[in-house]
Computed example of a mutant assay.
Amino acid sequence: MDNIREIVNGSQLKGFINKKVSITGFVTDKAPNGMWFDLRAADDEIVRISLKRPLDKPLEGYVEVHGTSSGKGVMADEFIIFNNETFDAKAHNTLCTLLYTVPNIWNTS
């Protein structure tokens, strides 16, 4: 069960401090030393992504980050670079909102 994580947008990070999260957004800035990058999450919040090792390849466009929430940012365990620019941030933000506002969303009975 180590792979369980909450799907969140930028404003929801503070509700998951020290918990595993997944956040998706568009890369907006990178540290010169490669130890962090900023992304614009699906709700337009800017989130700082801290890395355990410096980036070793170019990073741009949309990425999905898996890591631990600090409330304002994420300490990344891994990230996935999307191969296209057609990510629907508005729909993803709606998903993030529904996951935490609809009671028992996974209940099928």
Score class of each variant (00 low, 15 high):
Thr24Cys: 03
Thr24His: 02
Thr24Ile: 15
Gly25Glu: 02
Gly25Arg: 02
Gly25Tyr: 06
Gly25Asp: 11
Phe26Asp: 05
Phe26Val: 03
Phe26Glu: 07
Val27Leu: 10
Val27His: 01
Val27Cys: 05
Thr28Cys: 09
Thr28Arg: 10
Thr28Lys: 11
Thr28Phe: 05
Thr28Tyr: 12
Asp29His: 14
Asp29Met: 11
Asp29Ala: 14
Asp29Asn: 12
Asp29Thr: 13
Asp29Glu: 13
Lys30Gly: 08
Lys30Glu: 11
Lys30Cys: 09
Lys30Phe: 04
Lys30Trp: 05
Ala31Phe: 02
Ala31Thr: 02
Ala31Cys: 01
Pro32Val: 13
Pro32His: 09
Asn33Trp: 02
Gly34Arg: 01
Gly34Glu: 11
Met35Gln: 05
Trp36Ile: 08
Trp36Lys: 04
Phe37Gly: 04
Phe37Lys: 02
Phe37Ile: 09
Asp38Ile: 00
Asp38Glu: 11
Leu39His: 06
Leu39Asn: 04
Leu39Asp: 09
Leu39Ile: 15
Leu39Gln: 07
Arg40Asp: 05
Arg40Cys: 01
Arg40Ser: 10
Arg40Gly: 08
Ala41Met: 04
Ala41Arg: 05
Ala41Ile: 11
Ala41Glu: 06
Ala42Glu: 08
Ala42Lys: 06
Ala42Cys: 13
Ala42Thr: 15
Ala42Gln: 10
Asp43Ala: 06
Asp43Val: 05
Asp43Lys: 03
Asp43His: 07
Asp44Ala: 06
Asp44Val: 05
Asp44His: 09
Asp44Met: 01
Glu45Asn: 10
Glu45Leu: 00
Glu45Ala: 13
Glu45Gln: 10
Ile46Asp: 03
Ile46Pro: 00
Ile46Gln: 08
Ile46Ala: 03
Ile46Cys: 09
Val47Cys: 07
Val47Ile: 13
Val47Arg: 04
Val47Trp: 04
Val47Leu: 07
Arg48Trp: 01
Arg48Gln: 13
Arg48Ser: 11
Ile49Ser: 03
Ile49Cys: 07
Ile49Gly: 03
Ser50Trp: 08
Ser50His: 12
Leu51Asn: 07
Leu51Glu: 05
Leu51Thr: 12
Lys52Met: 12
Lys52Cys: 00
Arg53Gln: 14
Arg53His: 15
Arg53Asn: 14
Arg53Val: 14
Arg53Lys: 15
Pro54Arg: 13
Pro54Asp: 12
Pro54Cys: 09
Leu55Lys: 03
Leu55Ser: 04
Leu55His: 06
Leu55Asp: 10
Asp56Trp: 06
Asp56Gly: 10
Asp56Lys: 00
Asp56Phe: 00
Asp56Thr: 04
Asp56Leu: 02
Asp56Pro: 00
Lys57Gly: 06
Lys57Glu: 15
Pro58Leu: 14
Leu59Asp: 12
Leu59Phe: 10
Leu59Lys: 03
Leu59Trp: 03
Leu59Gln: 13
Glu60Val: 09
Glu60His: 12
Glu60Ser: 14
Glu60Leu: 09
Glu60Cys: 11
Glu60Ile: 11
Gly61Thr: 08
Gly61Val: 07
Tyr62Ala: 14
Tyr62Arg: 00
Tyr62Trp: 13
Val63Thr: 09
Val63His: 03
Val63Trp: 06
Glu64Thr: 15
Glu64Gly: 09
Val65Asp: 03
His66Asp: 15
His66Trp: 08
His66Ile: 15
His66Phe: 15
Gly67Trp: 08
Gly67Gln: 02
Gly67Leu: 01
Gly67Ala: 02
Gly67Met: 04
Thr68Gly: 03
Thr68Ser: 00
Thr68Ala: 03
Thr68Asp: 07
Thr68Cys: 09
Ser69Asn: 07
Ser69Gly: 04
Ser69Tyr: 03
Ser69Glu: 08
